[in-house]
Structures are given as structure tokens and as C-alpha cells.
Design a binder for these strands. Structure first.
Length: 931
RNA sequence: GGGCGCAUAGCUCAGUUGGCUAGAGCGCACCCCUGAUAAGGGUGAGGUCCGAGGUUCAAAUCCUCGUGCGCCCA
């Protein structure tokens, strides 16, 4: 307990820095963000990269509704990693965020809030409210995205409700019209007879409802398969819960792989014999409905054997075919499905495949039109059910009837049951001019990451039906079609569409609703069919997928002029069906080329068990709250830590673990800065590289490997590799090895002596390199660290204007690295031996120990004796030769030398100085040089 | 029900073209230090490579069939 112990401590160079250990991200991050805004960092980056090769990540517009959630966070953070890393690689990589502002959810919300008032309001008034609603969410989401540190042109985003963008949409439509892809065709849609309006899927409420359920025999007019040949006529038995759709029957569907039986049975009511065909599995069940006991199977066939057989409609003079469909099941009914393409979605698909007519003899109020048999004319469809059933009974076609309770869609507004009714819709024809084939070829040219994305979208494009692009709603871009008041013909051509494109660009799409029709019609317009010159505005709007799918026009090639095609689209894997597909279809259709070079997809955010997050399950994590609580850099690091190609697991625990990782990285920065004294009075440029010690050179060599690996990770967009490499290097090579070993030199040597200057040279390089490498992932922390670098001509104002480091070939030395692998192996043995000695309570710190290495190759180790001493942080290392030992063995003993009061090493030189009797010779030398 | 994916320590990830006893970091346990201190260091324990078959001298890796989970359809 000498009294001068304290003063010696004061002679050490202990770390000092203003870089806090406590991150305090929730306070600091908004400060950095405010600063970046103030200095217009985004604009500065654009300026700094202008003229460089351009790589544009084109933002897929999120829907402007609700707070951002973890899915948004994942997507936007990944995009930010891409954009920032491209920028730091030297590319000009502008990022213009966008929002999808039109569509049903917003319109639905507005109309719901209005309640009964909605009915009396005009399109324009409702659209105005929708716009307000959308912009409200755009503002909120923008704030939330910016809080995550996403860099981009937030002051000037693209909005699908922007007149310029709307014009872009109509421009794409014009091109498609010009090339003949757009046509009109009947398609069944959900229809409310009471409100006389179309309904979207989201506007349906499913309720239990009682409907008649009937089994009907249709007479075959074709010859049945060979094993069913008999003299008597054959029937096929169908089942339906919507008798009123029978007038529109144009086919009967069977499953190709199912077994069907030809049955001869005696109807107990009439005593008559019948022959009919139904699914083999259902024969018993169906026969028991009428308590038929006298029946016999004549023969069997597969569904596919029945294809194209003709049958006769029970009450209309019409023959129709049997067709194949995969959705046919034996869950109920007869295994033969009455098919009316005008009255059902599946029926419609089947109808398209077989080119069947789409009949829909029902008007807007649900009454049969003159296309139906005369006895049904003017009757409301549900009211007509009993009459149709009676008719079938009388004619002998009806096998059985019962009432069935099942789930049936109802109108969300009037609560009445809805119907499927075919109406004229606008389509983009996928097979016109081989758009499908063209698109598939364009898909080949695109790089899909991960590679299976190609299979996925190829399968979807090769199977998709024609694209119905019209919607009967208010909140969207109107399809600028004019209806001839004389003949009903719709006028919509490339020329008229371009007229409206220009109008929308000037006045916005609202012009369609606000201007009287006379001022809208291009002068000289004539109906191509009847020559009429009087028109009315049609009311349909475009599918929102068409809108967002046109962003390559409104954002890339026009509007923002980012360049076409984009370098990358990056969205969740659900967008193979959604935006990727709508984008490539509209692009190939309008200009023959894919709008993207690379498509990167990520998985979905799931909980810690790998199950999807849902509010009802209660396993969600709020992205907004998590950011408020932990800070953006921690969540960003979390995103970086996982392979996004698969689903991404997120949990509260995971975020906490990531906070630990963050602190490790942060502390590494802090320690580097601490020993650099925040660069006060130290300029790494002034250090002579010849003064570097071996371990310093080795460290710089290791750092080169890190730079190379991290850059490879960024170039392949594999950010988890970036994270793993940086984090593990911080923990292993740096914190637990190099920085630990360096302590003696940093603390005890002369403040500005060559030993310490050499070490600080390496620390400065580490600081500079690491700050740059982590900048795309932790932009706030990187900026905070960057601020400590002294200003100079080569230091940009912000790390985000800087470029990535390059590995420095001066420090590469493969033979040295190989030798170091051996050294580190031996060190591991020493540490294990020390731990044994420590557990035996012989020593505390390693400095108390002397290590004896017994080896049969002293020539190998003797020259590295001092180095081993240093890297093991012991007091002494002795090398002893033993030719018998094939492997090095390590023995540990307690040092017999006294402890230096200043540097805590155990040295025989302690006590040699009369003036400083408690110090080792090195510390005496340092003290004397500084006093 | 169909299409496309994924599955290796508690967590996040490595594991060329099949080839020693399946690795790393974190976490955990125990220990040390108290001059990075709401820090730092050390040692150690953790695996039915989702399951079952198959191919092969040899399978985490290739094939088949399952199971679980996700996305997209129906």
C-alpha cells in the first residue's frame, strides 16, 4: 500500500472520449435526422454522385392506410440498405418513395364514416374526402419511415393520385389500346339487386341462409362411353343451390380424375326406370335421398371420358357440352357441376377455357330479361326459384329437392343476399399478340433473387386469365370511356385516351367528374358503330394494380425521370402475383421490355415460433413502438442480422438480444475513439508505417479480409453476411484479442512514442473502416462516430456522402497469416492452461503467470517468444526443448517477480530504480521521459 | 385441395462438386479482472442436421414419401 500508487495511475494514458457508452438512440436519432434534413443531405448526396453510373431502386408504393407495421419496416429498411450501399459503392442511386393512394379500403372507410349521407353525395365530394384520407396516412407513414432513418426524396414522393402520375397511368392504357390489348367482355361480378350496384369481395358479408337445393337429370344426347352402351337413354345428374341460374346453364363440369358410375334405378314415386351418371362415391348417398333401393351400376368411367359429351337443357332448346374442371369435388352434390359462366367465378373461368357463351339474362334489379324463357320474363330471380323447380318437377327432370342452410354472401350495406351477374368489363387480353409469351421471354431476361422467384412468376403468368382492369367504384383513375347515347357503344381508343391523359395531367383525374361531358368529348368524335355524336361519361375506374403497375411510366420514364428500366424492384414474395406481375405486363404490353433488371424478394415477418403475426392471435410487435423504445439502429441491425430470403422471425426477445449486439459494436467504437483521444493531437497520417509492430500488421491484414468479405456481402445484397462478419470480428479479433492485447502499449508507453503511435495508427484505420462499413445498416450511429473524425479536405460533412473503404494491399501477407494461425492455436492452449490455474485459485489475472512451453521444435517458437508473451498477456514465456514431445505442451506457474505498480506486469526489473522502487524498467523510462 | 418456398445448438448464421469426431458468434453456466466499468477477459456445457424410407464404400448434402410453417391460388 504505497502512498504514491495513485500518482502513477495518473501517468497512464487511459481512454478518454465524448462518445457515450449509452447510445440513447431514441433521443439522438431524431437529432441526426433533423440535421440531415437541415443540410439537405439527400440533395447533397445527389450532387456528390451526379455523373456516376446510375442504379435505381424503384420503390413499390405501400397502401396509404394505417400505421406502418413490421412488414413495412422490413421492406423499407432492406431498400435503404440497398440504396445506401449502392451510394457508398459510388453509384448514383436516387430513391423516390411512393404511395398507393386510390382503392377500395380508403373509399370503404370514407363511405362507412359518412353513413347514410354517402348516398346523396357526388363522386367528386366522396373523392375529395378520399383524397384527404389518403394524404393523412401518407403524412403519418412518411414521418414513421423517416424515423427509421430511411434516406430518400421524402419531400417529393410519388403519389398515385398526383395528376402527373394519373396521366402516366392513362398513357400506359393508351399504349395498350393502340396495340389492341384492351377489349370489353361480359364477366360475372357480385351484384346487389336492391342497391343496383357492383360489390367488391371486401363488401360482402357472409351469413347463414336457407336456399333450395335441387338434383336435376339432364338428358345426354351424345353416345355415352362404351361400357355404358344400353338401349335406354342416359342422363347426367347435377346439383345446384341456385335454380334461378339454370337458364344460363351452358355446360356441366366433371373432374377428370374422378370415377363416375352409370346407374339404372327405379324411382319409387313413379315406378319408372331411369339411367343417370354421377360420381361413384356419391351413388349411395344420392340414391338414399329418394329412398331408392332398386338401383344397379351399369358401368364406370373417368370424368375425362365424359368430356365433350352433349346434353340437352331441361327447359330451353339448347345443347351444351360436358367439360372438365379441377375444382369439382365429391364433398356434396353429385360430382357434376351445373355451369353458368354468367353467374359464377369458377364457372366463368371454365367458360373461358371452353369458349362458352356468358349468359346473364338478369337486369340490374335482379329481374329476368327477354333473353330468359318467356315464362320468367320480369320475375325477380329468387322469386323465380319455385317456378323453375315446379317446371322441372312437371317435366320429370327433377330428381330431388330440399332446403339447405349454408353460408351465402350478403350486401354490406342493405344486408340482402347478393347475386352473381355478368356485366361488361374492360380487359387486357393476355393472349392478344402473345403478350403472355412476350412477358415470359422478358421474365427470362430479369435476374430474380432468390432464383426461384422466376419459377413462381412464370407459373403465374403462364396460367393467368385475361386481366379485368375495370372496377365499379369511385376512388381511382376513371377509365375515360364515352358511351354513345344512341347505341351504347363505348368509345375508347388510343387517341381519345391520350386526349384524356393530357387533360388529367393538367387538371387531374377529377376533371372526368367535374367537367360536363360536352367539354370532355374530343371535338369531332363520332360513334364508330352508329356514327352518333352524343356521348355520356362511363363510370368505371381502373384496377389499382393497373395503377401501381404503371409506375414505370409515371415515375421511371416520365415524371421523375429516374431512368428505364429500373436496376431493382424489391418487395415481399406476395408481389410475384401483385406488383411485379402488373408491372411487367403493362411494361411489356406498352413498350416490350421488363421495367426492372433485378427483382429481389423477401419473406414475411413471423413471430418467434415462425407463425404469422396477427392482431387476433396477439403476437404482433408494433414497429412504431419498438422504434420509440429501442431506436431505429437496433431494429435496422435486427433486420440486417437475418436472411430475408426466407421468412423473418421477430420477437421482443430478439430485439433485446440485438440491443446487446448493438452495444458490443458501439463499445468497440467507443474504445477506439477513447484510445485515439477523439483524435485530439493525433494525426494518423503522420505515422511511419515502418514503425508498425507485427501484431499491428497482422491486424491490418485481418481488416482487409473483413473489408473484402463485407463488400462481397453488400454486392450480393446478403446483409446478414455483413452483419455476421462485422459483429464476429468486433467480438473476437478486436475486443477479446487485439484491443485487449494492446492495452499495455496504449496505457503504459510514452503518449507520443513510436509504440503507441503505431497502435493508434491501426485504431484510426479501424475506426475509419468500421464507421464506413456499418453506415448503411446503422446510419445514425455511424454518423455519430464519423463526427469524431477531424475535419479535413478528404472528410465529407456526413458519412453518408463518403464511400466504402477499400482493402489495402500493403497489409496482405499470406505467409504471415499462416504463421499466425499457429500462434493463435498455441495461444488457445495457453489460455486453457491459465484457466485451469485460475480455477485452482493460483492466479487471478493472466499477468500473474509465467508460461512454460515444452516443444520439440524450439526453433519455431523461440523467435516468437516475446510475441507469445504479448498475445497471451502473461508476465513471461519460457520455451523448453523436449525432443519427445510431438505436440506443444503448456505449463503454468506463478511469477516470482514483483508487480510493477504502474503497468501491473510482474517483472524482475521492479526495484532496480532507487527513485521509483515499485516500477519496472519500462515504466521508469517512460516516467523519466515525461517528467 | 393446388403451385412456390423454408426446416442445421436456446437465437442468428457457416457447412465447395456427397468425404475425418457437423462449425462460428451471441445467449447460458462457471471463473477472473476492477485502468473500456450499466464495461472487459477466460473456460465450458449445448445438435435425433424436421421425420421415415431409398441411392452410395460414405448423406446435413442426392432421390421419394411425409410433418410443420410461410406466400400465392382454389
Amino acid at each position: 500500500m504505497s502512498t504514491n500508487a495513485k500518482p502513477y495511475k495518473d501517468t497512464l494514458n487511459l481512454p478518454v472520449t465524448r462518445f457515450d457508452m449509452k447510445a440513447n438512440l431514441t433521443v439522438r436519432e431524431p437529432q441526426f435526422q433533423a440535421r440531415w434534413r437541415e443540410q439537405d443531405l439527400y440533395g447533397a448526396i445527389r450532387k456528390a454522385r451526379s455523373g456516376r453510373p446510375r442504379k435505381v431502386l424503384h420503390d413499390g408504393p405501400p397502401y396509404a392506410n394505417g400505421e406502418i407495421h413490421m412488414g413495412h419496416l422490413l421492406n423499407k429498411v432492406l431498400k435503404d440498405f440497398v440504396v445506401r450501399s449502392l451510394t457508398m459503392r459510388g453509384f448514383d442511386s436516387p430513391y423516390v418513395p411512393g404511395w398507393d393512394c386510390h382503392g377500395l379500403p380508403i373509399e370503404h372507410k370514407v363511405v362507412k364514416d359518412l353513413g347514410s349521407k354517402a348516398a346523396s353525395m357526388s363522386h367528386t365530394e366522396i373523392r375529395e374526402l378520399c383524397k384527404k384520407e389518403a394524404l393523412k396516412w401518407v403524412d403519418l407513414q412518411r414521418t414513421q419511415f423517416r424515423r427509421l432513418g430511411i434516406e430518400g426524396d421524402w419531400e417529393n414522393p410519388y403519389l398515385t393520385l398526383d395528376p402527373r402520375y394519373e396521366a402516366g397511368i392513362v398513357d400506359v392504357l393508351s399504349d395498350l389500346l393502340e396495340r389492341g390489348y384492351v377489349f370489353r367482355q361480359l364477366k360475372p361480378i357480385h351484384w346487389c339487386m336492391t342497391d343496383r350496384t357492383a360489390l367488391a369481395e371486401a363488401e360482402l358479408e357472409y351469413k347463414e341462409s336457407k336456399t333450395p337445393s335441387i338434383f336435376v337429370n339432364f338428358r345426354l344426347t351424345s353416345t355415352p362411353p362404351d361400357n355404358l352402351k344400353t338401349d335406354a337413354p342416359w342422363h347426367v345428374m347435377i346439383w345446384t343451390t341456385t335454380p334461378w341460374t339454370l337458364p344460363a346453364n351452358v355446360a356441366i363440369a366433371v373432374h377428370p380424375e374422378l370415377d363416375y358410375s352409370g346407374i339404372r334405378y327405379v324411382d319409387p314415386r313413379s315406378g319408372q326406370e331411369h339411367q343417370t351418371i354421377l360420381a361413384s362415391e356419391l351413388v349411395g348417398k344420392v340414391m338414399s335421398l329418394q329412398s331408392v333401393t332398386d338401383f344397379k351400376e351399369i358401368g364406370r368411367c373417368k370424368g375425362r371420358d365424359l368430356e365433350n359429351l352433349q346434353y340437352e337443357h331441361p327447359f330451353i332448346k339448347r345443347r351444351s357440352p360436358i367439360v372438365l374442371a379441377d375444382y369439382v369435388s365429391v364433398d356434396d352434390g353429385t360430382g357434376l357441376v351445373h355451369t353458368a359462366p354468367g353467374h359464377g367465378a369458377e364457372d366463368y373461368q371454365t367458360g373461358r377455357r371452353y369458349q362458352l357463351p356468358t349468359l346473364s339474362p338478369v337486369d340490374a334489379s335482379g329481374r329476368f330479361t327477354s333473353e330468359a324463357p318467356e315464362w320468367l320474363l320480369g320475375k325477380q330471380v329468387f322469386a323465380a326459384n319455385p317456378e323453375i323447380i315446379e317446371r322441372l318437377k312437371t317435366s320429370g327432370h327433377l330428381y330431388h329437392e330440399l332446403l339447405l342452410e349454408h353460408s351465402y354472401p350478403h350486401c354490406w350495406r342493405c344486408k340482402k343476399p347478393i347475386i352473381f351477374r355478368a356485366t361488361e368489363q374492360w380487359f387486357v387480353g393476355v393472349d392478344h399478340n402473345d403478350l403472355r409469351g412476350q412477358t415470359l421471354r422478358a421474365i427470362e431476361e430479369v435476374q430474380w433473387l432468390p432464383a426461384w422467384g422466376r419459377n413462381r412468376i412464370e407459373a403465374m403468368v403462364s396460367q393467368r386469365p385475361d386481366w379485368c382492369i375495370s372496377r365499379q367504384r369511385s376512388w381511382g383513375v376513371p377509365i375515360p370511356a364515352l358511351g354513345c347515347t344512341a347505341c351504347g357503344m363505348q368509345l375508347l381508343t388510343a387517341e381519345t385516351a391520350r386526349h384524356f391523359r393530357d387533360l388529367f395531367r393538367k387538371e387531374g383525374a377529377d376533371a372526368w367528374y367535374t367537367s360536363p361531358v360536352e367539354s370532355l368529348v374530343p371535338s369531332g368524335s363520332k360513334c364508330p358503330k352508329c356514327g352518333g355524336a352524343e356521348f355520356q361519361k362511363e363510370g368505371d375506374i381502373l384496377d389499382v394494380w393497373f395503377e401501381s403497375g404503371s409506375s414505370h411510366r409515371g415515375v421511371l420514364s416520365q415524371g421523375f425521370e429516374l431512368g428505364y428500366p429500373a436496376f431493382m424492384y424489391l418487395e415481399g414474395s406476395d408481389q410475384h402475383r401483385g406488383w411485379f406481375q402488373s408491372s411487367i405486363l403493362t411494361a411489356v404490353g406498352s413498350n416490350g421490355q421488363a421495367p426492372f433488371e433485378t427483382v429481389l424478394t423477401h419473406g414475411f415477418v413471423v413471430d418467434d415460433k415462425g407463425e404469422k403475426m396477427s392482431k387476433s392471435v396477439g403476437n404482433t410487435i408494433s414497429a412504431v413502438k419498438a422504434t420509440e423504445q429501442y431506436g431505429a439502429d437496433i431494429l435496422r441491425l435486427y433486420v440486417a442480422s437475418m436472411d430475408y430470403a426466407d421468412d423473418v422471425r421477430m420477437s421482443e426477445r430478439g430485439i433485446k438480444e440485438m440491443s446487446e449486439a448493438y452495444r458490443k459494436i458501439r463499445n468497440t467504437f467507443r474504445y477506439l475513439l477513447g484510445n485515439l483521444g477523439d483524435y485530439a493531437e493525433f494525426d494518423p497520417q503522420s505515422v511511419d508505417p515502418a514503425s508498425l509492430q507485427e501484431i499491428d500488421l497482422w491486424m491490418l491484414g485481418q481488416l482487409n479480409h473483413v473489408v473484402d468479405d463485407v463488400m462481397a456481402g453488400y454486392e450480393k445484397f446478403e446483409f446478414y453476411r455483413v452483419h455476421q462478419r462485422i459483429y464476429q470480428f468486433c467480438s473476437v479479433e478486436l475486443s477479446s484479442f487485439y484491443l485487449d492485447v494492446l492495452k499495455d502499449r496504449l496505457y503504459a508507453e510514452l503518449p507520443d512514442g513510436p509504440e503507441r503511435r503505431a497502435a493508434r495508427f491501426v485504431l484510426a484505420r479501424l475506426h475509419d473502416v468500421f464507421t464506413r462499413l456499418v453506415a448503411p445498416i446503422m446510419p445514425h450511429t455511424a454518423e455519430e462516430s464519423w463526427d469524431f473524425l477531424p475535419a479535413g479536405p478528404h472528410k465529407p460533412e456526413s458519412i453518408h456522402l463518403a464511400e466504402f473503404p477499400k482493402s489495402d494491399p500493403r497489409w496482405n501477407e499470406p505467409e504471415r497469416d499462416a504463421r499466425w494461425v499457429e500462434l493463435m492455436d498455441l495461444r488457445a492452449k495457453v489460455l486453457a492452461a491459465l484457466e485451469g490455474f485460475r480455477k485452482a485459485k493460483q492466479i487471478g489475472s493472466a499477468q500473474e503467470a509465467v508460461v512454460t512451453i515444452t516443444t520439440n521444435r524450439p526453433d519455431r517458437w523461440t523467435p516468437d517468444r516475446d510475441l507469445l508473451n504479448t498475445i497471451c498477456i502473461v508476465s513471461d514465456v519460457r520455451i523448453v526443448e523436449d525432443p519427445q514431445d510431438s505436440e506443444e505442451s503448456v505449463a503454468v506457474s506463478k511469477s516470482t517477480s514483483p508487480k510493477c505498480e504502474r503497468c501491473w506486469n510482474y517483472r524482475s526489473s521492479v526495484g532496480q530504480s532507487a527513485e521509483h522502487p515499485t516500477l519496472c524498467d519500462r515504466c521508469v523510462r517512460v516516467i523519466e521521459a515525461t517528467s
